[in-house]
Every structure is written in structure tokens, then in C-alpha cells.
Design a protein around this nucleic acid. Sequence first.
DNA 1: CAGGATCCAGACGTGGATCCGT
DNA 2: ACGGATCCACGTCTGGATCCTG
Lengths: 220, 220
Amino acid sequence: MIAAPKTVDELLSRAEQICGLSFAQLAGHLEIPLPLDPVNAKGWMGQLIENALGATSGSRPVPDFEALGIELKTLPLIQDLPKESTFVCSTPIPNVDKSWRESRVYDKLKKVLWVFIEYDKYKPISHRRIGKSILWTMDSQTEAILKQDWEELTEKLALGKFDELSAHHGQYLQIRPKASSSQVFIDVLDSEGQRVKIVPKGFYLRTSFTKEIILGSLNK
Amino acid sequence: MIAAPKTVDELLSRAEQICGLSFAQLAGHLEIPLPLDPVNAKGWMGQLIENALGATSGSRPVPDFEALGIELKTLPLIQDLPKESTFVCSTPIPNVDKSWRESRVYDKLKKVLWVFIEYDKYKPISHRRIGKSILWTMDSQTEAILKQDWEELTEKLALGKFDELSAHHGQYLQIRPKASSSQVFIDVLDSEGQRVKIVPKGFYLRTSFTKEIILGSLNK
DNA sequence: CAGGATCCAGACGTGGATCCGT
DNA sequence: ACGGATCCACGTCTGGATCCTG
């Protein structure tokens, strides 16, 4: 167990230390076994890096580095561009986040340490490498768009318009299923106050969003 | 997996069928392995009998036989008298049960199938036997006392008077710790609205109460 | 001997994400 | 290419209770 970093510098220093390592090397240091099958290890790389950097939050809805207010996100890259959308957090149901600045989404995204990792479907996890890290702070233009997305999506949630909640909405932020399978349901109240069953949902960042972060980081 | 009984008669018939069996016999029928160490199998007998009779509720706060409104309780006896207090349910915190008749305690106790089981510390679980069962319905005198106990205890809970919440209160019903250890805490608001940590608690029936049920059953 | 402490199982929710079929 | 589907870990909570020590 690695202690939480006390300062931002300490966190960034740790991130530099793991840059360039293969997952086999890092897992060896931490004495954590490598997974056999990538399909059954979807979150493994993210959790390994959490361990390596001393993230503490476990499964609580707070930033990974609570004292520093910094969230950790790994970002798989193919040829220096993000491959996938990025999960942000579950949608609170019933909706309890009152405003954008008080929302889980804002809390998770206001300051993020993005750790780039190599993605190659045909390379075993052990041989993939950890890349650079950048500490990113949400700027005001980005915030304006995320806020607008969040408010639009949150309104549909609050009003119980679950029919209209598909992944098609939102410029940067979208809502998609977040469950073990499409057979998992939770009970919620729909727009007419009736109990209905829906699949649990989560907020995700579109790939176009993280692509801009990558491009922005090149200018520094 | 045994289906839920559709009628009270079906339930009572099943209870008669397992009466007299040893736990080794019943576990064998159900193809469930016997526990090695009694200390690590505190709830095992109760859950085995749930399986045998077709209880369905899992860990939800509803009666074991939901459709019949009947709760199942095993009661360990030493020489025909109950050995221990009986767990009823966790205390809802913050308190959401508004009245006695709407409370979890009432819901769990209004109708109970008590299944007596043999307790003998020096006999391996495999050789202990399942005893008779009685279907018990709360009568009005009993309800009056339980209601008074519940209201007294619930008021202390609602007011946040956790200092005064010991197992010393209540004639039939008492409050005791209900957690993995005394090191487990939850956050609650005390009588002055301050966040404090307490060990989770549960409602229990005193042994004197179940003793009266046993004695009452002899008169029939 | 009873009040406080403890033990196991299973459902559930959140967080870590990537898979994969159209 | 991306919207919908899926996979693992783990902490928490509730329900099943009995243990154990002063």
C-alpha cells in the first residue's frame, strides 16, 4: 500500500517515475499478478496506476487524490490519439446534484491527472507501456460546454424523460448504460410519477473531447 | 433452488417434513456443504432452513415469505427453552419508520414461523436436529408491549440520543450493536445536529420474550 | 447471563474501464 | 465509429444469527 501524495509535486514526480514502464514491470514492483485475459481485466490498468500513485478514494464518489482535489484518469492511446470514450461517474438517481458546480461531474473533472497508456489490441497487457502524464485544469470555454451538456442531460434525468436519454445527446458529455448487463434494472420515477425500470446509467466523455485535451497538451 | 410456497398450508407442510432431520441430512438433500467450525457459521442453520422452505427475500427488508406475509425465524433451544436473544432487523438511520404499524419491526414480527432447532455446544452441527415449527401471530397484549418498547427506542434514535441507546432499555425489544466489529462506524446526526460516528445497531428480542412464545405454544 | 462484540453470505452501488455488433 | 453492452473489484448494507467475557 502506497501512501497518498502530500503535494502536487509529489504526485507529478511519481507519475514521471512510472512513465515508460511496461505493465509487467509496474505490476512486478507492486507484487500484483498480471491478468490473463484482457476482456476480463477492463479496469485493471487503471487500478494498477491508482495503486502506484497512491490514490485513496476506493469506490467513494470523491476525487482519487482527495486532499489535492485531483482525479486520476488513464487514457488509452492509439498512435497518440484516444481510442475510447471515458467514464466519468454514475448518474445520481434520484437526481440530487443541484447545480453544475455542485455536481459529481464537475467535481470529477475540474482537475484531472491524465495518464496516457499504450493501447494495442494485439499486444499482451504485460508489454504495453505507460506513457506521459499531464495535469489538466478545466478552462472556462470547456466548462461552458460541459455545463450546458450537463444541464441538458440532468434536466432529462430530473424530469424522468428516460426515453430521451440516449448517447446521442451532448457535445462533450453523454449518457450511456453503466451496468453489468442490459438485464440489470433499477426502479425510478418517470415523467408521470410512475415507477419504471431502467438500466443504470453513467456520464461519459466523448472521444472528441479527450482528443482536444491531447492536442492542447502538445502546445506546451 | 426451491420455489416459494404458495399457501400457508404448503409452508407448514414443508416445515413438518424437515422436523426431526439432522442438519447433515437436510444439507445432504440440498447438496450444501456442512461448515467446519460453528463459530464461523453463525447464520448457517437459519439460511439452510430458508432454502429448505423456499424463502425468497434474500437480503431485502421484507418478510421471508413475501406473498404470505410470514417471517421465518429459527430459535435455538436448550432443554426446550430458548438460549439466546433473536435479531429482528437493523435500525433505520436516519429514522424513516413513521409509526409502529409502518415499522420494519412490526412488519417482521406480525406473523412468524418459528422453527425450533436443537442447540448443543458440544455436539457437531451435523448431528443437531431440526425441531417442530409453530406459526405465531402477534396478539394484542404482546403488540402493546412491543409498540411501547419500539416507540421509546425509536424516539431516542430519532432525537439522536445515542448515549442513552444501550441494551438496557425495553421490556421485550432491545437495541444492541449490529456490525462486523466494534470498529465499524456510520455517520449520523446527534441530538445537537452534529455529525458523530456510532456503531450500527439492530433491534433484538430478549430471550424472555421468546420464552413466552414457547410456553404459549405448549397450551395448544 | 446478558450486553457488547463478532462472523458469513449475498445484493447492491460505485468506480476502474473496454468490448463489440451494426 | 460509436451507441449500447459488458467485465472486475470492492466497500457498504442488510439479513442470517451466535460468541464471549466481565
